[in-house]
């Protein structure tokens, strides 16, 4: 499934499993779908960015930047993230440039239902992670 098809899918089905999706597709050369995920209790705090390569669909949430990490607890934060990686369903912590991100990867042939499951899990994991690890951040 390419990103444009996926964007159209979310446009046509904005509500799924009690979640509301608001998608925006970037006009850039590398198309990126920004999905804002809302529930009754949360409202698009952390957008999920979706992009596709030949092999996989990548769903990424940007958590924080290097400048937000309390430098004296940096090593502790890294260890905590590594420890949380396995217990956290479907999602993993990662870094790109100066950003700490959480991401999930799907096979490029995944069905919309799988992608929805991935996106909401990632979104909920990310919200929890930011709260859980906030003590290491300024």
């Amino acid at each position: 499934m390419d990103i444009k098809t996926l964007a159209r899918f979310f446009e046509e089905h904005p509500t799924q499993d009690g979640y509301q999706f608001n998608g925006r597709l970037s006009p850039s050369e590398t198309p990126v779908l920004q999905l804002q995920v809302s529930t009754l209790q949360t409202h698009d705090e952390l957008p999920v960015y979706i992009t596709a390569t030949e092999q996989q669909i990548l769903c990424i949430v940007y958590l924080w930047q290097d400048s937000e990490i309390r430098s004296e607890t940096r090593a502790e934060l890294m260890e905590s993230m590594l420890e949380l990686n396995i217990p956290m369903p479907l999602s993993s912590f990662a870094r790109t440039g100066e950003h700490t991100v959480m991401f999930g990867a799907l096979h490029c042939q995944s069905k919309p239902q799988d992608i929805i499951h991935e996106v909401v899990t990632l979104h909920d994991n990310a919200l929890e992670a930011v709260q859980a690890l906030s003590e290491y951040l300024v």
Binding site: S28, E29, T30, T51, Q56
Partner: peptide, 18 residues
């Protein structure tokens, strides 16, 4: 390699577009 490139391009696209 391609995924690395893609993630970088994605970050750039996000900064530019969103």
């Amino acid at each position: 390699v391609k995924t690395t490139e893609q993630v970088q391009k994605t970050t750039a696209a996000i900064s530019e577009n969103f």
